[in-house]
Design a protein around this nucleic acid. Structure first.
Length: 258
DNA sequence: ATGCCTGTCTGGGACAGA
């Protein structure tokens, strides 16, 4: 079983690239972030024609998440991250697919820091930690994947060179500690597990020639519950997708489970 | 310190992204 996560940066403008990638990569489950579209503008029919059932949580202009499943439709279990009834951002959707709980998230960017957006990022991560613990307690097979907006370390496996990013929210101690506490609950960072120390970036900024320079960051992650971690066969990033005409600034990341 | 690029909403330029 192949499960992928892909921040598509706008499903309307990215639809041809998305369909192309689904066709060639054939994930069984695909988690999407940054739809940047309202619910009624989600291209359900085009995805169905491509063989994928979908559930989604959209929003005008920003955010928005979806879970696609090949030859079936995911069964939604949650449409928001618990812990703040006033949070109106569409950043979390959770569904069951073939007996696996799939959590698809788009964590807040948090810039500029310090400031209210950074506070929101940190509070959101704390809510994620609480909910992730509940998911582990359920003893079900769970994958939590998406754009975490955290570069785990300054190592070359996670960032080309931290120098230009030292003040960025993605590298700050607080979100990194939150990420580490998440892992300490018992989750396996699948990409790291299979590629420790290798550059396995998932994001290259459109600006400053960062794609041609391979100046990337690893911020899209797949976390596996203990039960699923035992079944991990392979993990990777479809890097070539980032180099295409009209690409998202993220590349898809994926795991294969036996 | 700022712009570098891209998408959205909207029909210009602000805002957000990371």
């Amino acid at each position: 079983m192949k499960i992928a996560t892909f921040n598509i940066n706008g499903i309307k403008s990215r639809l041809p690239r998305l369909l192309e990638w689904l066709e060639e990569s054939q994930p069984d489950v695909a988690c999407l972030q940054e739809l940047k579209a309202q619910d009624e503008n989600f291209p359900e029919a085009a995805l169905r024609d491509a063989g994928y059932g979908a559930v989604w949580q959209g929003q005008k202009s920003w955010n928005g998440v979806a879970i696609l499943a090949r030859d079936t439709t995911p069964v939604v279990t949650r449409r928001a991250l618990p812990g703040d009834a006033d949070d109106s951002h569409s950043r979390y959707i959770e569904a069951a697919v073939d007996g696996i709980v799939v959590a698809c998230l788009y964590a807040p960017n948090g810039n500029p820091q310090p400031g209210p957006k950074f506070d929101y990022k940190n509070a959101w991560m704390e809510r994620l930690i609480v909910h992730a613990h509940e998911l582990l307690d359920s003893k079900q097979p769970v994958v939590i994947c998406g754009d975490f907006n955290v570069v785990p370390t300054d190592g070359v496996g996670d960032i080309y060179n931290p120098r230009s990013w030292l003040n960025d929210a993605l590298l700050q101690p607080q979100p990194r500690e939150a990420w580490q506490r998440l892992l300490d609950q018992g989750w396996t960072d699948a990409i790291h597990k299979k590629h420790a120390g290798e550059p396995v970036y998932t994001f290259w900024d459109y600006m400053r020639n960062r794609w041609p320079r391979d100046a990337g960051l690893r911020i899209d992650h797949l976390l596996l519950s203990p039960k699923l971690a035992k079944k991990l066969v392979d993990a990777g990033v479809d890097k070539a997708v980032r180099g295409r005409e009209g690409a998202s600034d993220h590349a898809p990341a994926w795991v294969v489970l036996k």
